[in-house]
Design a protein around this nucleic acid. Structure first.
Lengths: 336, 336
DNA sequence: GCTACGACCCAAATCGATTTGCATTTTGTG
DNA sequence: CACAAAATGCAAATCGATTTGGGTCGTAGC
């Protein structure tokens, strides 16, 4: 007799059901036919004993962990929890476990985070961080771990990409500002080498060019994708003379920081200066003035990533990489 | 010769270093002394081959997964990502992997989520959801998984608890409103049976009693801890006559929803009616009017949970359960 | 009634690490 | 210099599931 406290193993189930472990495994996996009566008996015992296969033993044998990892640059940016929620929407029902890692931890550089995650042998990775280098991505690709990225340069060997068309998004914002008659439109960017920064900046420049406006380097500032970055950058840009009359921010957090500064300087928004964001986090509609921004469908992006990953993990898709572009939408509120 | 594509196993390392697998394992775990020269040699080989122990094999043998799970009620409530970030702050450096599960998924009831997480044999669980029943908790406790809860009824056999003193927090808010001369103070609660709802309501009632005020059932409404819940509840409460002149909301999201309603009704805040929140999520300071609320130290709560869990996992603490109460702080802004 | 053929089940090898019990050096001491 | 004690290495058992190659049993066909 087994002692009570222990978790039953597959042998215990087999014994209780009067069959072999092989048979139990087969009713679990369905890889070989099992008679209806036997199956029913085994399932009853499983239920009764509360048996759950040991995931370590299973993945040791099958080389699959049934878990995927999400790596984000900043959990305090509400955009990323939404992506996580979207992933969950899809992953949960397939039994996958989602782990979330914040690469913004003071002490944790991305290469280390990637090593950490790879060491855990997850089946797939959703890389939502913009600071990834080709080496980081290459390391993931080489490990055989399925990879989906949020944005970034598209390269076949680097896996699928899901993104919104940020260039057009910023372009739409800037065009909107031009339509409204703003003259000196400045751009307040995130980390200068990050891919989203580059493509958003591109949208800014394209819109200006199309309108026949000059692109003035003194009206472009790079910092970080945070509220603090917005504060710092807005101070710089708003001290230019003549002062810009519009601040296009590369995301909503930056815009929130910029509004901190306009408030502090006593500038009226959008009277003295327009401020726009990007992402449409919930705070964008709550802040005063409500932010003009572009809706970045975070949750849907998460769901899409999950689907791509599941496709590949199921072996149903093994061709070249795909890039999926989701719709964005300009949302005009009170700040422009 | 091993083929190139394969990941090296411990035997490959041993062979390359000219020692036995036992020795390699010992330099990895340090459970038995290994000569400095041998250790250096082995470590060099590990580095060269990029060897990482297979976590499945390891946890199969050791019965430890080096991972912990966080279960939250709602990832879109910014409070919970902050808790997750706090957990990461501490867990990461100990090599633990954090998985996050949102129990608010439409199709996922808590018991199922708990089963799912337990089936993965995580070492510890941080249960941050308020809908947990005693059965849920009991199931976790029985499984031997270490448990830390965010709030809830304190019971020795149910593991440690980390919380802020919500009763006092709401009490502080209500007292503040009384001081400011508000007369008809209503309470807009979250899920009625949730523990945080009960203890926050308690703070409301205590403050009224202490001030010699009556507790009027028609001024108390329960809904959900969401913006939508706030909208719905505020509509009800603000239609009472005479109309309450203050709405104490059980969290910030509810308060945000309440402000949606006051705006819609054309009521001035705090002129016609005061609105207060709880948690101090970032949006609380951004919204207009800025919310009077109570700071709930989410990130620190997360860190504390992680520390308690690590204590127990390291076997350094095996006594009765602890309840840790973190400081809250009343933050008076413009909405009261 | 006997052979074939399925249908079903079993024993044993395997995944990759950890961990004993022993055997074999080294080191230290009188 | 010898001998005890400490340091270090090895072989083999073990964790719990998956997965083959082989049986064994029952049934269908003649």
């Amino acid at each position: 007799m087994k002692e009570a406290g222990r978790r039953p193993d597959i042998a215990a189930v087999a014994a209780a059901a009067g069959v072999s472990v092989t048979t139990v495994s087969h009713v679990l996996s369905g890889r070989r036919p099992v008679s209806a009566r036997t199956r029913a008996k085994v399932e009853a015992v499983i239920e009764e004993l509360g048996y759950r296969p040991n995931p370590s033993a299973r993945s040791l044998r099958t080389d699959r962990s049934e878990s995927i990892a999400l790596i984000v640059p900043d959990l305090t940016n509400p955009f990323y929890p939404l992506v996580a929620a979207g992933l969950q929407d899809v992953l949960m029902s397939s039994g996958y476990l989602l782990s979330v890692t914040d690469a913004a931890l003071p002490s944790r550089a991305l290469p280390e985070v990637v090593r950490h995650v790879l060491a855990r042998r997850v089946d797939g990775i959703v890389l939502a961080t913009y600071g990834a280098t080709d080496q980081d991505i290459d390391k993931i690709a080489k490990s055989g771990t399925k990879l989906v990225r949020l944005g970034g340069r598209f390269r076949a060997e680097f896996g699928d990409i899901v993104r919104a068309d940020d260039t057009s998004g910023v372009h739409d914002i800037v065009s909107h500002l031009i339509d409204r008659g703003y003259q000196r439109i400045a751009f307040l960017n995130g980390e200068p080498h990050a891919h989203p920064s580059q493509i958003r900046l591109e949208g800014y420049e394209r819109a200006l060019r199309e309108a026949g406006r000059p692109i003035l380097p003194e009206l472009i500032h790079s910092g970080t994708f945070t509220r603090a970055g917005g504060v710092e950058g807005a101070k710089v840009l708003l001290s230019r003379s003549p002062r810009p009359d519009a601040l296009v921010c590369a995301n909503d957090l930056i815009a929130v920081g910029a509004l901190d500064v306009t408030r502090q300087l006593g500038l009226s928004v959008p009277g003295d200066v327009a401020v726009t964001g990007y992402d449409d986090i919930e705070a964008a509609s709550l802040i005063t003035p409500a932010l003009t921004t572009v809706l970045n469908p975070a949750r849907e992006i998460g769901r899409t990533c999950a689907r791509l990953l599941l496709d590949r993990l199921a072996g149903e898709y093994d061709d070249t990489a795909r890039e999926i572009v989701l719709a964005h939408r300009l949302i005009v509120r009170d700040s422009s």
